[in-house]
Design a protein around this nucleic acid. Structure first.
Length: 755
RNA sequence: GGGCCUGUAGCUCAGUUGGUUAGAGCAUGCGCUUGAUAAGCGCAGGGUCACUGGUUCGAGCCCAGUCAGGCACACCA
């Protein structure tokens, strides 16, 4: 709270804050301004009137009157302007009713409607016809007061109702205000808190009268002065105060503003120095900053941080940076309630202000509260810093928090409060409909619901899997699918871990000193190279906040490279080679490296699963305290990549042949197959037959030269090794172990003799 | 009603500077395996790249328009 006040003090010091009148929704029943959400609409009958303003200056002076229409006659005393559409056609037309003749200016399109409503019949052809721009700058005599209203063109003029000439009272309407202030008109609003005319209204008999009661008087006055062209009952929906149920009025009251014009250029410059994710965020916020008007920081509310404005004995608002800082110090000690608890005189005494100084009753716009969090939180806490690394919010906050923070930060520090700004879309249902807490959407929307149902890891996995920069699709089905992905990842970690059970810590430690590439086989070199690719992609994706790329990369790696290829292929050596065989150890080392890397890469997503897996590696510290793995190879192993790519193409050819053989019930398991592979020799150059048989997971491979790769599958004639289930030529050759192949016999023999 | 963004298989996503027959995982179907088993492996089907037009030898990619959806606005005197 104190910090917010100090920020305001700085704004005041820099001359950014000023006071001006602005119309607000005002409840005369509750004597307070209302927010948009506090206004409710009710059906209501009003007396709409057509009124003429005799043209007093300009080409038509003294020859015609401009006709306006309004449903709120009580705002006429505040009329300063009449608005017309620049492009619409207006006519100067003589009308007659019961012997009375009037020459009026109004929109061509609305002549008929005007006749119908007032009984004035057009006489002859229009005397003149021109677009609205021609009227611009003309003066028109106010029907009740000795002053001239000016005719201006405006965007908001419509041809639905009225005359095409719109009565504008800058103190009594949003559009009126915008048009009036743009053209330098005073924001005239001669109405008090209770909705009664003040002295300013300039018509003595109206002073003190409730405006809705005054409608009748005004209509009578208009009639007396013969400026009333017609009246009609008008049924429409009108805003009411939700609490006092009284009709609201638009009424201009003193508001405090921040001059955005003084900050705009610096803000636009600061925007270019921020890393916007996605990129179009920059475009979006630049657009909102360019177009935003001055910031109204005062609110007529009874709760919130008090706006530190004082009033002199004569009622002049005082903005004084030193006073505000003194107040901030007091608030820091006694809390912001001192503002409300202390009387004017007590507060003045505490702060050392001149006697007779009073405090204002406005509060500060809550966007200031959140908008200065970079100062009040980031800059003050030792573990944080300002500017922040990153702000994250939904796209609606380009106009909200992102902008309010930016503006206050530019005012204070002349830079953005964030280095990176990430935005996400809104969650939508399968049919693209928005899911929100406030709408009638009846399915669960709380994250906690899905955490308790599916687990936090799955919720995080979901969040990581979608591209959040767009609309975020959501459905129960997605969670079911995600469960499969999750189990795939978890199972992959599990089998890797299972295969590492007899790997010694010393073996792992040894890796660094050895040339592992030379010691590993083709498939190991390939998977380690693939891992490097995965690490590189994931690091880049994390770096740029593209978490769904991490998800897909790891998912693909687990499902294809590891599960269906590497682990499947190396199963034989893992289960059946001698425990210490170089081939088996090489694979274990690769698996160890993969397991370690996967734990680290998955840690931000599968927070619990990765930690659980990580603990099995035997370290003490949590995986969440580890760094991401480094890409080991300075350059990719192009030899193994090309070699394995070729093998994978051949594997597809063999796979189709195996499938055909299976359907013919020739074989079941592919280890029962004798595959004759025909292809160009160079595709498998330098790779031993043993290695090929292992790679393709087939019983027996016969190679023949051919241009186009093809494969034929027969049932092998070799017997099945009881230990490794492969069908090998050597099974049955041994006298001691007739049911084993040569490899398995060696392994078994070695184990027997070692015990 | 103007501004910004999005649209590729049932779902989630790739698709490089415009360049062969648009890819992957999951899901689905059919098999295999039973030493990852509340697992694993294989094969297959599935697409008018929202739509229409244009530029080009060639467009998922570039351009224009349309449709659908999202966001922040505006309008409603």
């Amino acid at each position: 709270m104190a910090e917010i006040l100090r920020v305001i003090a700085t704004f005041v010091e820099k001359g950014l804050v000023y006071v001006s009148k602005k119309p607000v929704f005002w409840s005369s029943g509750a004597q307070t301004a209302l927010a948009e959400a506090e206004v409710e609409y009710q059906e209501r009958d009003d007396q709409a009137v057509f009124v003429k303003f005799p043209i007093a200056t300009g080409q038509l002076a003294g020859k015609a009157s401009i006709a306006i229409w309004t449903t709120t006659p009580w705002t006429l005393p505040a009329n300063l302007v009449i608005a017309v559409d620049a492009k619409e056609i207006y006519v100067v037309q003589e009308f007659r009713r019961e012997g009375v003749s009037e020459v009026l200016v109004l929109a061509d399109k609305l002549v008929d409607a005007f006749s119908l409503a007032t009984g004035f019949q057009p006489t002859g052809e229009p005397m003149q016809t021109f677009p609205g721009t021609k009227l611009e700058g003309f003066g028109a005599q106010h029907p009740l007061l000795p002053r001239t209203s000016m005719i201006l063109t405006a965007e908001f003029v419509t041809m639905d109702t009225g005359t095409g000439a719109v009565h504008v009272a800058p103190g009594h309407g949003e559009d009126d205000y915008a048009l009036g202030s743009k053209n330098g008109f005073p924001i005239f609003s001669p109405v008090d808190d209770h909705g009664r005319y003040t002295e300013e209204v300039g018509i003595p008999e109206l002073v003190g009268k409730y405006v809705f009661d005054a409608n009748r008087d005004i209509v009578r006055m208009l009639r007396d002065r013969e400026v009333l062209l017609g009246e009609q009952n008008f049924h429409h929906s009108y805003p009411y105060c939700w609490r006092s149920k009284t009709p609201i009025i638009f009424r201009a009251v003193d508001q405090f503003f921040i001059r955005i014009d003084d900050l705009r250029a610096a803000a636009l410059d600061a925007i270019t120095k921020v890393d916007w994710i996605p990129l179009w965020g920059e475009n979006r916020i630049a657009g909102t900053v360019e177009s935003r008007p001055d910031w109204v920081i005062s609110r007529q509310r009874s709760w919130g941080v008090p706006l530190p404005v004082f009033y002199s004995g004569s009622g002049e608002p005082i903005l004084n940076a030193n006073w505000i800082r003194r107040l901030a110090d007091l608030v820091a000690v006694r809390g912001s309630n001192v503002w409300f608890e202390l009387s004017d005189s007590e507060l003045a005494r505490e702060l050392g202000l001149p006697p007779g100084t009073t405090k204002g009753s406005d509060t500060i716009d809550v966007w200031i509260d959140s908008g200065v969090s970079h100062r009040a939180v980031c800059a003050r806490r030792p573990e944080l810093h300002d500017p922040a690394e990153m702000y994250l919010e939904a796209t609606d906050q380009h106009r909200g928090w992102f902008q309010s923070s930016l503006m206050t930060s530019v005012a204070l520090n002349n830079r953005a409060p964030y280095k990176t700004c990430v935005t996400h879309g809104f969650v939508v249902d399968l049919d693209g409909k928005k899911i929100s807490k406030s709408s009638t959407y009846d399915k669960p929307v709380e994250a906690s619901h899905f955490v308790s149902k599916h687990g936090a890891d799955l919720v995080r996995l979901w969040a990581s899997s979608i591209n959040y920069t767009d609309d975020v699709p959501f459905s129960e089905e997605m969670f079911t699918r995600l469960g499969d992905t999750y189990r795939r990842m978890r199972n992959t970690l599990r089998i890797l871990h299972g295969n590492l059970f007899d790997l010694l810590v010393s073996d792992v430690a040894d890796v660094g000193s050895r040339s592992t590439t030379a010691a590993t086989t083709l498939i190991d070199r390939w998977i380690v190279d693939r891992l490097d690719g995965v690490i590189g992609e994931c690091r880049a994706a994390y770096e740029s906040f593209e978490f769904h790329k991490v998800y897909h990369t790891i998912n693909q790696f687990c499902a294809v490279d590891l599960s269906s290829l590497y682990i499947d292929i190396t199963k034989d050596r893992m289960y059946c080679d001698a425990p210490n065989s170089p081939r088996r150890r090489a694979t274990q080392l690769a698996m160890h490296r993969i397991y370690d890397a996967l734990c680290r890469l998955l840690a931000p997503v599968l927070a619990f699963t990765s930690e659980e897996a990580w603990r099995y590696l035997g370290g003490n510290a949590s995986v969440h305290l580890q760094l991401f793995p480094e890409v080991r190879a300075s350059q990719r192993d192009t030899y193994v990549n090309t070699a394995v790519d070729r093998l994978l193409k051949l594997r597809a050819v063999i796979g189709q042949a195996l499938e055909k053989a299976r359907q013919q019930k020739l074989i079941g398991n592919s280890l029962e197959a004798r595959v004759i592979l025909r292809c160009e020799r160079k595709l498998i150059d330098g790779i031993s037959r043993d290695e090929l048989e292992e790679f393709f997971i087939v019983g027996e491979l016969v190679l023949e030269e051919a241009n186009e790769p093809s494969a034929v599958v027969e049932r092998t004639s070799f017997a099945k090794c009881a230990r490794c289930w492969r069908h090998r030529e050597t099974v049955g050759k041994s006298r001691t172990h007739p049911d084993l192949c040569d490899r398995c016999e060696d392994v078994v023999q070695a184990r027997l003799s070692s015990t």
